[in-house]
Amino acid sequence: MEYLTNFFLPSAESTYATQVDALFHFINIVSLILLVGITFAIVYFSIKYRRKSQEDTTPVITHNTTLEVTWTVIPLILILIVFGWGFKDFVEMRTPPGDAYEVHVTAYSFGWDFEYPNGVVSANTLYVPEQTPIRLLMRARENDVLHSFFVPQFRLKQDLIPNRVTTAWFEAKRTGEFVYFCTEYCGAGHSIMNGLVKVLSQEDFDAWLEEEAGRDLDALPLAELGRITFTSAGCAGCHSLDGSSRVGPTFQGLYMAERQFTDGTSRIADEEYLLESIIYPQRQINVGYPNNMPTFYGDTLSERELAGLVEFIKELQ
């Protein structure tokens, strides 16, 4: 039984997940009974009443009130049950307890920022304490497109819209790592816009939060700062570090390599080129890649972060 439910659904890790699953299984079982019945009727009739001769005659049966009422009323009762059941659980899924811990979520093409009440921001990984209701206040970045936050194991999904706040909540039952996806199509990086929800014990979570808050980014060496910026600014959504192509080229071995552009020119990827392609990405487009790298990094990143990114890329030989 356990095996069967795990075959259909990922493990249920939020407080309301088990209820959702119960309805899922109920509908499946009723449907299966119905399907088996219909299939049986098809096969049985096809054999029992198969045409024996071209002269076969058949009775005239135009209707049968009892039968027709039965197959209207029974499904009617069933759908009312299913509606009520789904409704009841939905109310719970949409009503966070008053004392929920709040995390602000911002999605952009293609990454996620999670901001905690003390101002700490984690990129692409959501950290939460176990057995605590978490309320997500979510929006897509201004001028960005729709995204959707989906954690299969929590049975949680909610779209994010620019200029509007949508909400969702969950309470994780135990510690662990659970994958989340973006489920509203958002372009070339849609399928790599995923990450992890890390559920920690309350102590570990507090410790993590404190450590993050105390971290002095300005004291870090440039390349180290660059590594952090690479994830937090969302470059990782489009650029890999292992040589594979994503939306954009990989950074591995990029430094001092010769780049070919769509206008026929080429250039060696030195420091100046790297900086320029981060601040003005549309000036020179690499052959074989779309012209869709965001153009706002020059404004959103600090001088030190930009320099850090360049140093970080230089190290990836």
Binding site: Y16, Q19, V20, L23, F24, I27, N28, V30, S31, L34, L35, I38, I79, V82, F83, W85, G86, F87, D89, F90, M93, S148, F150, P152, R155, L156, K157, T183, E184
Partner: peptide, 23 residues
């Protein structure tokens, strides 16, 4: 079509739909 229909009922149930939508 029966399978298509009953899975439509599944998707109509709100709580389950939250999980299955866009998958």
């Amino acid at each position: 079509f029966t399978i298509g229909g009953v899975t439509g009922i599944m998707l109509g149930a709100i709580s389950v739909n939250v999980h299955l939508h866009d998958t």
